[in-house]
């Protein structure tokens, strides 16, 4: 059974049909790509799946369970995590605090622990911190643990976002242009990190990406979106040779 299913999902913004009849089935351990020109509706699809907006039509099923309509923090704690295209970090918090925060839904000490600093709280906070540090190790940013994110270079901020997304212990990870604004060297590193996360956690990953080189290399199957609709779906080779894709997408942008 697919871990994430989306059926006939549609959404309007005023008169604009931003997403129309979107369909997706993704199994655990698969990496899928989502490409399309600017304004095609890719980010909106992520926002709908992760519950930032409730889709107007259609269904989102996580392990067969309906999640559309739930508040986004519930969907996140059930196992759909994401990163943001334009880096939504908490500017006054440290790297370690970011990753600890993503454990929020698993905290059991409650308000009593928060107000009175019980032993249970101390134990749990230590546990969370341990796991957060492991993730920072994996991302290669442990040495930045106590830095405020505002001062970090762009590549490091991207890694913080990735670590934070993984800390929710997701089953499905939605990555919205994780390589945006990176130089070739950083690009290779972030691709390695995506592969590692995929290998170690057995995640299903849905990847939005502008650089075709990255999608072609990472993804087993790719969907192409234009004006909110999937116009082509298939393996990287099929997509590369599909005339509709070339027309909508490849024709307009230089292939990197």
């Amino acid at each position: 059974m697919p871990v994430l299913e989306v059926h006939k999902m549609s959404h309007n913004f005023g008169g604009l049909r931003a997403v129309n009849g979107y369909h997706l089935e993704i199994d655990a351990g698969q990496i899928r790509g989502l490409i399309g020109p600017n304004g095609a509706g890719k980010t909106t699809i992520f926002n709908l799946i992760s519950g930032i907006y409730a889709p107007m039509e259609g269904e989102v099923l996580l392990n067969g369970q309906k999640v559309n309509g739930l508040p986004s923090h519930r969907i996140a704690s059930m196992g759909i995590s994401r990163t943001f295209q334009n880096l939504l970090l908490w500017r006054h918090m440290t790297v370690l605090e970011h990753v600890k925060m993503a454990h929020y839904s698993r905290i059991r000490y409650g308000l009593v622990g928060a107000f009175f600093g019980t032993r249970k709280r101390r134990r749990e906070e230590e546990e969370i911190e341990g796991r957060a540090l492991e993730l920072l190790d994996m991302m290669g940013i442990r040495h930045l643990a106590n830095q405020v994110v505002l001062n970090l270079p762009y590549g490091a901020q991207r890694r913080v976002e990735m670590a934070r997304a993984l800390a929710t212990e997701p089953k499905v990870l939605l990555l919205d242009e994780p390589t945006a604004g990176m130089n070739p060297e950083e690009l290779v590193q972030i691709m390695e990190i995506i592969r590692r996360a995929h290998r170690e956690f057995g995640l299903a990953i849905l990847l939005i990406e502008h650089r075709l080189k990255v999608v072609m290399e990472l993804c087993e199957r790719i969907q192409t979106l234009n004006f909110g609709e999937v116009i082509a779906e298939g393996t990287p080779e099929e997509i590369q040779n599909d005339p509709k894709v070339i027309d909508a997408y490849l024709g307009k942008e230089s292939v990197i």
Binding site: F84, E97, K100, M101, G113, A114, F115
Partner: peptide
């Protein structure tokens, strides 16, 4: 005690970016 706990730090997360906070299970 409160503001040093992760539950209390959620206040900062909500302040700095509410959408990211809820996407991170807060």
């Amino acid at each position: 005690n409160f503001v040093r706990s992760t539950i209390g730090k959620a206040l900062n997360a909500v302040r700095d970016n509410e959408m990211a906070a809820s996407a991170m299970t807060v």
